[in-house]
């Protein structure tokens, strides 16, 4: 039975990688091809020189950020989850917390086959909900536009990420204050002393995460 289960999971995982790669390549071709297709339809092709210059100035930082995101989030999400998450985007503000929340609720551990299943289910569901909400929103945009763009509601939508991190912080910090206190203090002091860093917060995840992992490793070694 266990052998069957192992074999089954291995086959499932191999197929996930195959499907993930094929689908990702197709989506890549569609995304890069779409501006050319639109250009052909509208009679104005992209200016490749401007694209090259633009990439050198605004694109490189996002390329580095993509490498960091790939290295950090792929192990968190597993194979199926990470293929989907990189196709559908919105990682930090939606997919990662969503998958972590689902993992905790299901009581599974990172790196296990169960986490692979839960993470894939969670990100697929989250992506579909986003697609449906956006499609409905675009469809109903005219009547919704006034309501959603009303100035009174703007502070709510400008604070989606703080609202998310407040809720997640309570969940994660309360049982792990020994791990959380140092990165939280360090980041607060750093941002107070160099406020311009707020424009590169996603890059500051690296030292903050490294410090948290370092402390958790010391605690892990002590417990062993």
């Amino acid at each position: 039975m266990k052998e069957n289960r192992n074999e089954y999971f291995e086959k499932y995982n191999n197929r996930t990688h195959l499907l993930g790669r094929v689908f990702t390549v197709i989506v890549l071709v569609l995304l890069v091809g779409a501006p050319f297709l639109i250009g052909a339809v509208l009679g104005a092709s992209p200016d490749l020189g401007a694209v090259g210059r633009g990439f050198l100035s605004v694109g490189l930082i996002w390329t580095i950020s993509s490498v960091v995101e790939f290295l950090i989030y792929t192990p968190m999400l597993g194979a199926g989850g990470s293929y989907l998450a990189f196709i559908t985007g919105n990682l930090i503000n939606m997919k990662i917390p969503c998958a972590v929340n689902a993992r905790d609720m299901a009581g599974v551990k990172t790196g296990t086959p169960e986490n692979e299943i839960v993470s894939t289910l969670s990100i697929a569901t989250s992506s579909l909900v986003t697609i449906v909400v956006l499609a409905l929103g675009v469809l109903l945009l005219q009547p919704l536009k006034g309501f959603l763009q009303s100035p009174a509601l703007q502070p709510a939508f400008s604070n989606v990420v703080p609202a998310l991190f407040g809720a997640m912080a309570y969940k994660y910090f309360r049982g792990n204050m020994k791990i959380a206190i140092a990165p939280l203090l360090l980041m607060s002091i750093l941002f107070m002393l160099v406020p311009s860093l707020t424009g590169s917060t996603s890059m500051m995840i690296i030292p903050s995460g490294a410090l948290a992992i370092g402390i958790s490793y010391l605690i892990y070694r002590k417990q062993k």
Binding site: T110, A180, L184
Partner: peptide, 27 residues
Amino acid sequence: FGDMAMSAMFIGLVSAYIGSYIGSFVS
């Protein structure tokens, strides 16, 4: 340790963002 490390990474992520809100307010 893998599971602990991933939770720690997430704690680091949340810390960076909350730190940025604090820093932004203060300075």
